[in-house]
Design a protein around this nucleic acid. Sequence first.
DNA 1: TAGATTGTTAATCGATTAACAATC
DNA 2: TAGATTGTTAATCGATTAACAATC
Lengths: 210, 210
Amino acid sequence: MKKDKISSAVIRRLPRYYRHLSDLSHQGVIRISSSALGKSMNLTASQIRQDLSCFGEFGQQGYGYNVESLRKEVADILGMTQGHTAVVLGAGNLGRALLENFHFECSGVQLTAAFDISPELIGHSVSGVPIYSIDELENYLSRHPTSIGVLTVPGSVAGEMSERLIAGGVKGLWNFTNSELHVEGAGIVVENVHFADSLLALSYFISESL
Amino acid sequence: MKKDKISSAVIRRLPRYYRHLSDLSHQGVIRISSSALGKSMNLTASQIRQDLSCFGEFGQQGYGYNVESLRKEVADILGMTQGHTAVVLGAGNLGRALLENFHFECSGVQLTAAFDISPELIGHSVSGVPIYSIDELENYLSRHPTSIGVLTVPGSVAGEMSERLIAGGVKGLWNFTNSELHVEGAGIVVENVHFADSLLALSYFISESL
DNA sequence: TAGATTGTTAATCGATTAACAATC
DNA sequence: TAGATTGTTAATCGATTAACAATC
């Protein structure tokens, strides 16, 4: 039975399902049961069946799930087939690390441009992605509909940049700055990547285990 | 009443408490009630009091909490006062982004060294942190007790590097590679930073909101 | 003192796990 | 057919919220 409102706990597990199913698919595994998948992901078979049943009926009694077709279903659920596009704001180290090392296309996202203020960077390309002046942002967005803005700018300008992105029609912000974005306007989604929160959790667990 | 086993949900909120309390402290706020803090963090007052009561009694009836002393208590709980030290493995873009832009000391962690294989980097410093040859790792760790290893190496060598770090006495791995680390040995903690998981969750929410 | 707000116990809500009829 | 495994309903468990006596 398809559910209306999916809990955030389920959604946070979906990328992991996708990752494991991709691995299995690459390994040439054709079919898998919920209990086998559960064993390899450290989840109960029940939970996997519950999670998947939020979105449809993808398995077959007595057989299990076809790995590749389930992978495709999960990709669909995650919006990977929606043709999302992204631009990176800020081509400093972190921005360039994403440009060079992170494979947006593996998440179904096409990275089309980067923007910066540094004259040394403007006009160049990194990993085939052109770097434009931030002054060109509005002009660019008006001509290239863009769903995601990646914020790798200094925290001090994160607020201003997010407003300009949203005004330009961007629907989601992937925020790598410390700045807590307070975005008004309906339908805008913010995903924060707080390195410090992650490091502090690690610090807690280390300290606790001593 | 102090609790033995703290749930992971509580622990993941602690860094946010710390962040908000730091902000309040900087703004010169002296005292705050659970309901005022809840309002600004979008949590219920009840939840905040429950969370904090896992670790001790930090408030005062009729008054609330002293911001700065609560901040210090949370810092303590998070292990920020344990004098944790860290080394970065891999001084590519992502490693350098962390070296240059991320303030480890704000999380109570002292970053003491970085390691790489590239002859152009070895011997130089970034933001005051020396970059050594990866060949020096064991030698360095034996002379500088280190609690945290930051993995910003290519995924293909993540497994090998984590083994060497653990052999050298490191207690926690902050893993920025895609590689799913399977670490044996008691008391070793792994914190994964999966960029792709985060982007896919964003992709889901955008797609859902259309 | 009266008002405010804590820490904690009890009630509610939601998420995970177990059980099982349906069926490939 | 018999065995395996699903999707779903029911039971359990845990986390969040509400209520309130204690007290600053």
